[in-house]
Design a protein around this nucleic acid. Structure first.
Lengths: 158, 158
DNA sequence: CATTACGATGCACAGATTGTGCATAATGCT
DNA sequence: AGCATTATGCACAATCTGTGCATCGTAATG
């Protein structure tokens, strides 16, 4: 775990909020010179504390009306089966996030979809028929309370 | 839903990948002049197609070793109870995402945590004792197959 | 205590980037 | 065709970026 001082944390917090802040704007925000912000930013990128920068696109505006969480239970837990499932997940663009989990289901998928038909399509024509999959249970997002919250940097010691 | 042409889609895809691309770099990527990229980018921001830019921080490097999904069932579905629960969610920094869902649980939370003790703390000392909450079930992420995948812009017509 | 070594800092500056005005090209409409 | 509207590239002033460099503070060493 990297050693970070107060300037680093402020800088990370600021960039987490707005990834296109200029070094000058960062400088004004955290009370350092622009050049020093540039150097610190480069260091944090180098160290992979900052893993990247991304534009956040508004799914709804682009016609992705639906978010669904899909719980998957595999047919068997053989490595071969797991591998096939992972390949499937990688191939389906609508699946934005995928995790293997403890608990009753083996995997949790988050899918972004155009409408209910697309969800039905993914569940019934892609996931269910796949040989690796034993059981599928999907839930539709009714409301987002929180999305893309920042990491709680304030809890970092020193 | 906004009308987008091929240039817009290429531009969005590029910025989704790297949110700090300069207009010149965008220009080279999508085959347009830098000034025009600047203008299109401004329009897409104006129209909220691009909702923001964010630095992506590596949780593991910062000591957040654990991701957990927590399913919550409310005690009652009264508006008052829901409101109290939402306030709770807003207050807890470790909860990064929160959705209300169809299906057996009312809410799904994604929490980023320092260790198992923090998870136990949130579940047993924050969520369980809260008056609005009837049932809590948590799952720990064992592996990330996909995270922060891009919106499948290729599926957008025109 | 003095000295040395080292990292962090601000400043200066050359080179790159940004957004806007403007003339021109492309597109759509009557 | 004729006209209006929009998109485009170019030019350019203002801004931003990263690097060299001198200085400062701090910790370690003699």
């Amino acid at each position: 775990m990297v050693q970070l001082d107060t300037f680093d944390l402020k800088l990370l917090a600021a960039l987490q909020d707005d990834g296109r802040l200029t070094n000058q704007q960062l400088a004004d925000l955290i009370g350092l010179s622009a050049s020093q912000c540039s150097r610190r930013r480069m260091r944090l990128e180098e160290e992979k504390v900052i893993s990247g920068y991304h534009a956040d696109l508004a799914g709804e505006v682009l016609g992705f009306e639906l978010i669904a969480f899909i719980q998957i239970t595999l047919a068997t837990h053989s490595p071969d089966n797991a591998k096939k499932f992972r390949e499937l997940v990688g191939r389906v663009d609508a699946i934005q996030e995928a995790y293997s989990l403890t608990g009753d289901a083996d995997y949790l998928l988050k899918a972004v979809l155009r409408n209910l038909k697309s969800l039905s399509d993914i569940v019934n024509n892609v996931l269910m028929p796949h040989q690796s999959v034993a059981h599928v249970r999907s839930s539709i997002v009714l409301d987002k309370l929180k999305e893309r919250a920042k990491l709680p940097l304030s809890t970092i010691q020193k």
